[in-house]
Computed example of a mutant assay.
Amino acid sequence: MAIWVVSTIATFGSLFFSEIMKFEPCKLCWLQRIFMYPLPIIVGLAIIRKDYNQIWSFLTLASIGFVISVYHNYIMLFPPELGSCGRVSCTTDYFHLLGFITIPLMALIAFIIVIVLCIIGLKMDKKSTFIVGENQE
């Protein structure tokens, strides 16, 4: 259940920034979305179906998104001299929370949380309330 909450918040957060705040996503943001957006759906379906074997799928999506996000945060900190990676530069800084939290950093944090929750879930019983929201008996 916790994985679903985090991925849903991350998905709606990115939609808020692009659709409400009108911040146009760069190519790396789109790539990260490709790996975050399916998570609320497939995690939600796993919860509904009580399918406890899908955690590897969640971990795979989050891990690929994590790698992209690490690179995105790296080029935000150390912009390449080559210029833009597309119509919107991947180093465009739309938003700063508390002076250092950027949109790419928020995405990175979301991927890290999902990965940590997946790893914890793999170490716990498959019918744990932590992962799928069902009580153990």
Rank of each mutant, 00 (worst) to 15 (best):
L39Y: 08
I109L: 15
G86Y: 04
S18F: 10
T11I: 00
F23I: 08
P40L: 06
I9N: 03
L97G: 05
K123G: 12
M106V: 07
Y37F: 15
G65D: 04
I103K: 13
G99D: 10
A110T: 13
C118F: 00
G121H: 04
L15R: 09
I109C: 09
V114E: 03
I34R: 05
L39P: 04
H72W: 12
V67I: 15
L59P: 03
F12R: 03
V70G: 05
T91F: 02
L82W: 06
S69C: 05
S69D: 02
S18H: 11
K50T: 15
L98F: 14
L45K: 14
I112M: 12
V116T: 06
Y52R: 12
F100A: 10
F66T: 02
G121C: 02
N53Y: 12
H96E: 09
W30E: 13
I75H: 08
Y37M: 00
S63F: 10
T8D: 06
T60D: 06
M76N: 11
I103P: 07
N53C: 04
P79N: 01
I47Y: 13
W30K: 09
F95Y: 14
T102K: 13
C29G: 12
G86S: 04
R33G: 14
Q54C: 01
T8P: 00
L59V: 00
A10Y: 06
K27M: 13
L61E: 02
I75W: 09
F100K: 13
R49E: 13
H96Q: 10
L98N: 03
G44H: 03
L39E: 03
F111W: 08
I55Y: 08
F66K: 02
V6T: 15
S69W: 04
K22Q: 15
Y74M: 09
Y94T: 03
K22N: 15
F35E: 00
S14C: 05
T11R: 01
G13C: 03
I48T: 15
P40R: 08
Y52C: 13
L108A: 02
